[in-house]
Nucleic acid binder design. Structure first.
Length: 592
RNA sequence: GGGGGCGUGGUGUAGUGGUGAACACACCGGCCUGUCAAGCCGGAGAUCGCGGGUUCGAACCCCGUCGCUCCCGCCA
């Protein structure tokens, strides 16, 4: 080893020890005959002193050293003088007086300051990601990630789970997200697909009898990016046999709570995790992934609104829509332009407009729509939305999906503006009792709301034929601070039910056989009842780290346009490679 | 595919039609034995992302384009 100790471990009790340290020059402070070097390695920072009167040769070396040089220091640990102790550093009571300093490798002046407080732009950070990763923020995030994944592995292993790797080169299934394809050299014209998740494979592992499987699984989806979405991302993929929903929920909840409390500084708001039915979360928050760090619940005022003389409201209710409302605390004084901003948010969600009533400090109401309501109706409205003097009541009237989404977006925005969410809190909640299907109006068929292997509730199986909309599934999502952080279900393990689902979602039996024949066939060889879940590792770590996007917790993430700025991927390839793969590039015709 | 924001020395920003593009940090040189965001003195460094246009004159206005980013669509 080129070092005897690391740069974070030496303390006053080590005074007198001869040590060899190696690492990077974090900072250098030259005082003429005395030079201080903050030596950084993965474990911390230790101050090295080069004193011309102690070791002239080491001092000469230190004077030539620059930021980010890789150096090795031989010297002796000594306690600092009392007035020179730095209480802000874990190693601040000691320093290493250098006998010898060796440059293991010099460094060009870095393109941005590794140790500075100014945050470089993401473009710059991504171009030199290996330097970005030297920064404390990234080091901390990577360590958190390691600790979290280690916790998951140990937790599951202790409970009888076995980690099994599944193929990265697998089969394309056109359902779901766009696939990343890999051409086959030996099968001209044929392609592998990178897995969107190991869904089918983990179910097959249950058929194989492993009973408890997990994998830290890389998943690939060729869809456009968001702050919480990357083209390749990591799931803690899990599946269990002979379990019911409750078993999965209990186990995962125990895992998440243990992990958060062991590896992060965040507080879990509510334990055990609250459970909301899909219907209840829509009713109260307008979304299936609410941020429960704050209240600000929605009210349904359709009944009162339908009694009014306000045509906009009455006509919406008559045609099956909803009038939903939200009391924005303390915003009665909002100006026309501030309200227009909020209306813009509602409109982005598809709403046609935003109606408001301000509740003045004396309780009187100010609004352009009060004239359409009786005194009693107004009182009932205020009562129903729970508005206090000083609040601004926001109304959206539209078809249910739009009214809910618009109000949910407004709720989120108000949470942000009014700083209602505690950044140190994680508010987990289970969402359960999802509908099995969503109606796809365009294609005139039912789409699975989770995926096609999700089991209906046993007591709802009979409804598959008569009222598919009413069928609830055994799907469960784990939501935290407005993010979906896990999703899973008890699966179908009976061929008959699976084929009924295929039929309802408009998949021909022949197509199903072509795409999922291996799975259907497997179900005929003694498939145990089974279910599982897949927590999103990147999102969980992002939340535990308090970071605003998952790029901050991924060592080498892709940009918005799915590129790697450091390596320059994707890139063109040698024509010979293409030829071998039987691929010809078709150039887009020049525009104009 | 669509909408918004941003792009100015190495880094982060200011400058929004008129002299020599300003500031901080970093960098280079000098001084300096108790600093820890060291300090003091001096210095170098920018064709203002790229292309075109408007104008007597463009970092600034217009059009296009590239890149980063946020959002919609998309994400079983």
């Amino acid at each position: 080893m080129l070092k005897s100790h690391n740069a974070g471990e030496l303390r006053a009790k080590d005074a007198g020890k001869r040590v060899t340290l190696a690492g990077w020059v974090n900072r250098r402070r030259e005082h003429g005959g005395l030079i201080f070097i903050d030596l950084r390695d993965r474990w911390g920072i230790t101050q090295v002193v080069a004193d011309i009167s102690h070791a002239p040769e080491a001092h000469r070396a230190a004077s030539k050293i620059r930021a980010e040089y890789v150096i090795q220091v031989n010297g002796t640990v000594r306690e600092r003088l009392p007035q020179a102790v730095n209480p802000d550093m874990p190693t601040g009571e000691i320093e290493v007086i250098a006998d010898e300093i060796k440059v293991l490798n010099p460094a060009k002046n870095p393109p941005f300051e590794i140790t500075g407080e100014v945050e470089p732009t993401e473009e710059v950070r991504m171009r030199w990601r290996y330097l970005d990763l030297r920064r404390e923020r990234m080091r901390r995030n990577m360590m958190l990630r390691h600790n979290a994944i280690l916790y998951m592995r140990n937790f599951l292993s202790e409970r009888g789970f076995v980690e099994i790797e599944t193929p990265i080169l697998f089969k394309s299934t056109p359902e779901g997200a766009r696939d990343y394809l890999v051409p086959s050299r030996v099968h001209p014209g044929k392609f592998f697909a990178l897995p969107q998740s190991p869904q089918q494979l983990k179910q097959l592992l249950m058929v194989a009898g492993f009973e408890r499987y997990f994998q830290i699984a890389r998943c690939f989806r060729d869809e456009d990016q968001r702050g919480d979405r990357q083209p390749e991302f990591t799931q803690l993929d899990m599946e269990m046999s002979f379990v019911e929903r409750e078993d999965v929920l209990q186990l995962v909840e125990e895992l998440i709570i243990g992990m958060v409390e062991t590896v992060s500084e965040k507080r879990i708001k509510t334990k055990p995790f609250p459970r909301l039915s899909y219907a209840e979360t829509i009713e109260r928050f307008g979304t299936d992934r609410p941020d429960l760090r704050f209240g600000l619940e929605l009210a349904d005022v359709s009944d009162i609104a339908s009694q009014s003389d306000f045509r906009v409201f009455t006509s919406v209710v008559q045609s099956g829509g909803l009038v939903r409302a939200l009391a924005a605390p303390g915003l009665a004084g909002y100006s026309r332009s501030q309200i227009a901003e909020l209306e813009g948010i509602a409109k982005e969600a598809g709403a046609k407009g935003l109606a408001t009533i301000a509740v003045e400090a004396d309780g009187s109401l100010r609004s352009s729509i009060t004239k359409f309501f009786s005194e009693d109706q107004l009182a009932a409205l205020v009562e129903k939305v729970g508005a206090q003097p000083g609040d601004l009541i926001l109304f959206v009237a539209d078809e249910p999906a739009i009214a809910n989404e618009a109000l949910s977006e407004l709720r989120t925005e108000l949470g942000r503006r009014l700083k209602l969410a505690d950044p140190n809190e994680l508010a987990f909640t289970w969402i359960i009792d999802f509908p099995l299907f969503e109606w796809n109006a365009e294609e005139e068929r039912w789409d699975p709301s989770h995926h096609m292997f999700t089991a209906p509730k046993p007591e709802h199986v009979a409804l598959l034929d008569t009222d598919p909309a009413a069928v609830q599934s055994q799907q469960y999502d784990l939501v935290c601070n407005g993010y979906e952080v896990a999703g899973g279900s008890i699966r179908i393990h009976e061929r008959e039910v699976q084929e009924k689902i295929f039929e309802l979602i408009g998949l021909e039996i022949e197509d199903a056989r072509e795409r999922f024949g291996h799975l259907l066939e497997a179900f005929e060889y003694g498939a145990p009842p089974h279910g599982g879940i897949a927590p999103g590792v990147d999102r969980l770590i992002m939340l535990m780290a308090g970071e605003p996007n998952i790029r901050e917790v991924i060592a080498f993430p892709k940009t918005q346009r799915a590129a790697d700025l450091m390596a320059g991927a994707p890139s063109e390839v040698d024509p010979a490679q293409l030829e071998e793969l039987h691929i010809a590039i078709v150039r887009e015709p020049e525009a104009k």
